[in-house]
Design a binder for these strands. Structure first.
Lengths: 197, 197, 197, 197
DNA sequence: TATGAATGAGGTTTCATTCAT
DNA sequence: AATGAATGAAACCTCATTCAT
């Protein structure tokens, strides 16, 4: 691959094709799982197979790009909610929306899982953006008393990945999410009990 | 499942081979994931590839058999706990143990997920055994006031699958499980009842 | 690939196919050069592509096997000539025959070249067989006064590779070989003859 | 060779690019062999891949141009030596130098081989230049008694190609070249001369 | 019944060549 | 004229499945 002369902007049609490939990959991997073939992606994108490999020199790099894009999009949504009026609603609403997306897209679940683990790869590099935004949402919700104080962003990410999987693969619905949410809310009674005791 | 000639009982060595293959498959899929090759399974089992396909005519059927075996084993464990002294401990202990297994074996997670969804396939047919036993564990724990009354076996299965995934892929630990458990515990009444009583 | 149970002889049909593949590869590489495709070899051998890769798991290993087979055959011919009546004729005759083969088969030239260099790979392992036999032929010819005393097997191998290449690629014929042979002959006799004359 | 619009002289920058590509190709093919990619050549030349194909419409034509350039350079060296003081030294020195170059550059060997065979292609058309100059060197050396009288330029070209190959691929060194040189020297006179001296 | 050799579709990747910018 | 993105044939290799031994 000839790298573009440094400083020169990439050509418009190339950018367009890159985006088309990425979008097609996102859809194909969402529907068929990440073992879908690169040819399928090319077909869906309406480009030649060579074009896919020009933009993403290995299948792994394509997959990575898809996951990164998903994570960044989620991080963007989270950031927007950081200034919402009701911090509790913002936090739980975001959580719900991510889970709902995962139900349709397997890739989202994988992205969440990898973002939690992988500090190395590109996925890991994009993870912090989401974790940071989620951390802010969490902190605000905690300050407002909507979420218990003794959980951190890491636990929330783990719970999110699990619920996403449950929604997408195990056919679980709001009932399950409700349990998780209750687990995240501050405990009322025990404190009274503790006060009494 | 291999159907022997009708009326003829399967030969002893054939049964032994079937068991060897199943055990090998369980281990191989646990370690390498379900995309491991059938040859690998045959090698680990110490049999020819042809023998694997004689007992399990497609790779999918082999995978299914592995999942069914896992589910049946879990169901067995659950049934044993149905007569345990402390129903709450029995329920949460079982839940924890399943999640711990999943952390080591991807296949367990898949089994749980499929068991929740698939009412059709063989996995779905084995699911009810687990779901029934889990239902008993759940009912006893609810009656003892250790688990909130408004959740059913289906929700617990979903939560279990999600937590199993979180444990195996997203690197989540007891922290996350604690949140889920708190979500499962009664919110108000039990403590009041305890306080009153 | 499942390795055969140690001690069990390979199946007859497998051996037959292995030989067919090797023969086809030899011919294909001879005609089209070593960059010919593995599919072409399979087609010529009349087997599926999978069969080629079962016997030779990489293209490189196939190529290596071809070269080794060629070297071993040449070594065999050389060994037979070690007991020939006229050591000079044996040596030069062998040299000529190798060169003649190379004219038709590029692969022979490559085999000779690699045998000279590579002490590592399988080709290098087969090289010594040829070099040893050639060494014997050479020593006998030197003792008989047909070849000058101050050259060793390594130089002869080098000369052989060069002449093989010249014959196969540069269109050189006996004229060139005659020069090389004159270079190999002892320097004294002709002069004595000339002195006498 | 790029044909400009008839009557229009090629632009200066185009000529410059052509030269850059040719130089890059020579180096790339020397180091990586002739199977190096055209992209690699473009990168080394610092031009776009399209520019390479504008000047050399196929990879084969680029390769040919490289070989022709090499042959012409060798022919130039040979011509310069045609007026050297010692014809024997000129001839053998040239031979040695060509072989030494080949040890580093595969392409030289190929050029020599093709020059010997191909009367058709561009390589064949450049060959005569070298062959003529070599013929002159040879004739002078023969007249001076340094080379036997019964060999012609064709044989010398063949020997040269073979020795070039031996040097580059078979790891042969001066020992082998010495044999070839001895084969080229007159059989009787020089030694008598030496005996006399 | 058990074996493992044979099969070939399908996957990833490379690269000479074309063509819009 | 120069560029480099796009193309797709073709290469190597894997693996689920079949079938002769």
């Amino acid at each position: 691959m000839t790298s573009p002369a440094p400083g020169r902007p990439p050509r418009a049609d190339a950018l367009r094709n890159r985006a088309k490939v990425l979008a097609a990959a996102e859809e194909v991997f969402a529907v068929q799982g990440t073992s879908a073939s690169t040819e399928e992606v090319a077909r869906k994108a309406g480009v030649g197979i060579g074009t896919v490999f020009r933009h993403f020199p290995t299948k792994e790099s394509l997959l990575e790009a898809v996951l990164v894009a998903l994570l960044e999009r989620l991080a963007g949504e989270a950031e927007e909610l950081c200034s919402a009026a009701d911090p509790g609603e913002a936090f739980f609403g975001f959580f719900s929306r991510v889970v709902a997306q995962s139900a349709a897209k397997q890739a989202v679940t994988e992205a969440l899982a990898e973002a939690g683990i992988d500090a190395r790869g590109a996925t890991g590099r994009a993870g912090p953006g989401l974790k940071a935004a989620l951390g802010t949402l969490l902190a605000r919700a905690q300050k407002a008393g909507a979420v218990r104080a003794d959980v951190g962003p890491a636990e929330v990410m783990g719970l999110l990945a699990g619920m996403a999987y449950a929604a997408g693969r195990a056919g679980a619905r709001e009932d399950v999410l409700r349990i998780a949410f209750d687990g995240l809310r501050p405990r009322t009674r025990p404190q009274q009990a503790a006060a009494r005791g």
